[in-house]
């Protein structure tokens, strides 16, 4: 097995408002994270990227359900495991870092308590050993005076420091896979660069693979080896990061690229993709991006394009190819 994580044809749906038909948030997504690799999962809000990651964690909300598909962690299907077995995997073999460092730590428990709890949950270490390990982790993620910080409450740390704590907590058990759900969205740009560098350093040192969920193409370019672009619950394009930035094929990906603010040319309006993401309950019949696509033809509106290889493992879901 070369892939630490392999998702095959994942379909996730949600029940809501007492309606009979379920809203399909993730529709047949396949993706894989190679061992030691950093893979980006990009898309707008509501495209299903967070739902995909929560399915991997087994943390879908009560009204959500994986309808079909496989989620293989190092070849083992997570969906076939019991709740208990999945809990043993969470925080141990797979960890997750959340978007909001301000609210991801329990405000009434000390940093030390929370990091130590995470360590003791998955190891036989006694209190003293777990504490020593926690201090070591805080030191590793670049927190000054880690011993003193152990006794601090979350509100006494800055956002960047808290995200470092979260990363330290996530990396404490040296997980095989780290899922980072927009870990830098809530941080300053300068802190963002530090956090990204920290994640890459830890990944290189510990051999952890990372699934990076983001809507920030800058983060992707900075950190990732390969990228999946999601739109409306489906993967629309997949390529290694160089190919994607050099010659992205899908009109949606192009739209995302064009929406990035640039210094030149001056005085031009920033491009934005017209329209909005379609409603989960009212998906277009043909290509899901067709209503917003400037190249859309009759064909696009009536028939749905398949995800096909357009050369060298570069996948694209578009008739134009």
């Amino acid at each position: 097995m070369n892939n630490i994580l392999e998702i095959r044809d994942l379909i996730v749906s949600f029940a809501s408002d007492g309606r009979k038909e379920r809203a399909v948030a993730v529709n047949g997504v396949s993706l894989s994270v190679p061992k030691g690799g950093i893979v980006g999962l990009v898309g707008e809000s509501g495209c299903g990227k967070s739902v995909t990651s929560l399915s991997v964690m087994g943390l879908l909300a009560d009204n959500g359900r994986v309808d079909s598909g496989e989620i293989l962690l190092d070849g083992e299907d997570l969906l076939k495991l019991s709740d208990r077995q999945r809990r043993d995997i969470r925080g141990n073999r797979i960890s997750m870092i959340f978007q909001e460092p301000m609210t991801s730590l329990n405000p009434v428990l000390t940093i030390g308590h929370q990091v130590t709890e995470a360590i003791r949950r998955h190891s036989d270490m006694d209190k003293a050993a777990a504490r020593a390990r926690a201090i070591e982790m805080l030191d590793k993620v670049g927190i000054p005076e880690p011993e003193k910080r152990m006794g601090n409450f979350p509100h006494q740390l800055s956002g960047g420091m808290r995200q470092r704590v979260m990363i330290g907590m996530g990396m404490a058990m040296a997980p095989e896979l780290l899922i980072a759900d927009e870990p830098t969205t809530a941080l300053d740009v300068s802190i963002e660069a530090q956090i990204l560098r920290l994640m890459r350093d830890l990944q290189r040192a510990g051999g952890t693979s990372i699934l990076m969920i983001t809507h920030n193409l800058g983060v992707v370019a900075e950190l990732c080896d390969e990228v999946y672009v999601m739109y409306a619950g489906e993967v629309v394009e997949h390529a290694d990061v160089y190919t994607l930035f050099r010659e992205c094929a899908h009109p949606y990906t192009r739209g995302l690229m064009a929406s990035l603010p640039r210094m030149t040319p001056k005085g031009k309006r920033l491009y934005n993709i017209p329209g909005t993401v379609p409603n989960l309950r009212a998906m277009p019949q043909g290509c899901r991006f067709a209503p917003r696509c400037e190249y859309a033809t009759e064909h696009c509106h009536s028939e749905k394009p398949a995800l096909k290889d357009i050369g060298g493992g570069h996948l694209c879901r578009c008739f134009r190819g």
Partner: peptide
């Protein structure tokens, strides 16, 4: 809250 979700993501019972 996110911190409860974070705790669950750490495998806390």
């Amino acid at each position: 809250t996110e911190f409860v979700e974070a705790a669950r993501s750490m495998g806390v019972s």
